[in-house]
Simulated assay, not measured.
Amino acid sequence: MPGNERLEAHGLGPVPTVFASGGRGTDQVQYAVASGTAYIRLNRPRALNALTREMVEDMCAQLDLWEGDRAVDAVVLDGAGERGLCAGGDVLAVRDLIHAGDHEAALEFWVREYALDLRLATYPKPVTTIMTGYVMGGGLGISAHARHRRIAAGSILAMPETAIGFFPDVGMTYLLARAPGELGTYAALTGATFTAADALVMGLADRYHETPPDAGRAPLAAARGWIDACFAGTDAGVIVQRLAGHPDPGARSCAAVLRERSPLAVCVSLERIRRAARESDLGESLDVDARVARGMLAAGDFVEGVRAKLVDRDNAPRWRHARIEQVPRDEVEAVFG
């Protein structure tokens, strides 16, 4: 089993050859225990292990069982297949709930997901996450807060929510606000992908599985000159104007990216990361995320963004506002209300 070989190669074995479903009737997550270590394996490889409500509930229940199990001393979490740990939450299912008029059920998915993130972060037994391939959105939520975070050199990471009219949730602004300079602000607002090397620089991972020859190459860190200069402050309109007028072509390209994102989501994300810098712990940050998630659902850009990016795939979202500069401050405040 390729996943087992990966774990054993990095001293996280011997791993059982047989993983089994938990007691809640889903095979979307599978488990095993060997030599004092419990293993969680996300098991939707064809969907890049995207998180469903069933997966979230199943993992929470299993962690509860293991907490009192003296045969379990530590937990390791990885994803089935070779393409990625987890590409995020199942936003298509959330959109379907909203279309059905069940906004509370849609919000409850995020609330339960955030509870899982906090559970993994504060679990009394050490949790090690194995970040490989695509690790995005909710995939970072279940991995970047863990006690031990190992990352493969070729991993592709992102908090891409502004592209679908949402904001970087799952407690990630708590970490991004503490990244060097404005690297976290860049990642939060643009939703752009970044490398494993930059994840290490930003404090989202601890160490490589195996140190590659080019381990020191962190493209975002190398661009901190224009990133720090342009992404400072609390006005998203000023940020995009700085980027557009900057002599570095990377900055001008970044301005074009921001122009494609939901203007409201960009402004909310900037406010979110500034507030996260003042929050005392992850629990507080996740509570704020739940409030902002409710506000963003009510604002409407999320449903339109998912339609444009993942349903019709026309990449032509009709955002609530035409430009970032047109988003009123009171609308941003209302989202946090």
Results as ranks from 00 to 15, higher is better:
M172G: 14
A163I: 14
A100V: 03
R261A: 08
I151K: 13
Y114R: 09
L183D: 06
K125M: 04
V29Q: 05
M172T: 15
S143L: 08
R274L: 05
V335R: 02
D214E: 00
A153P: 14
L63T: 03
A71G: 03
C86K: 02
T211V: 15
L183P: 06
R178K: 12
G101L: 00
R224T: 15
A115S: 11
V288E: 09
R259L: 12
G84C: 02
R112S: 08
D214A: 11
G138C: 13
G245H: 06
D314S: 06
R261H: 13
V56S: 01
G154V: 13
Y114L: 10
V303H: 01
D27G: 04
E108C: 09
M296P: 05
L310R: 04
R24N: 09
G305F: 00
L77R: 04
M202T: 00
P168K: 14
A232K: 05
G141A: 12
A290S: 13
L286V: 03
E8F: 03
R313N: 10
E210Y: 15
G36E: 12
E333K: 14
T234W: 11
A223K: 06
L118I: 07
R119Q: 09
G138K: 01
L282P: 02
G237P: 01
T234V: 13
F109E: 01
N49W: 04
R261Y: 04
P16V: 01
P160W: 01
E279W: 03
D27A: 08
V72S: 11
D214C: 08
V111F: 12
V15F: 05
R329E: 15
F166S: 10
A87F: 02
S262Q: 09
S35A: 15
G237L: 07
E54P: 02
L204T: 13
L282D: 08
I130G: 14
R323D: 09
L204P: 05
L157Y: 08
F302V: 00
L97P: 06
E331W: 07
L282Q: 07
R178N: 09
A221M: 11
G300D: 10
R207A: 13
D64H: 07
F194M: 04
T193R: 10
A87R: 00
M55C: 06
T162V: 14
G191W: 01
A47E: 15
L157D: 10
C254E: 07
I151D: 11
E271I: 02
A316V: 10
G36H: 09
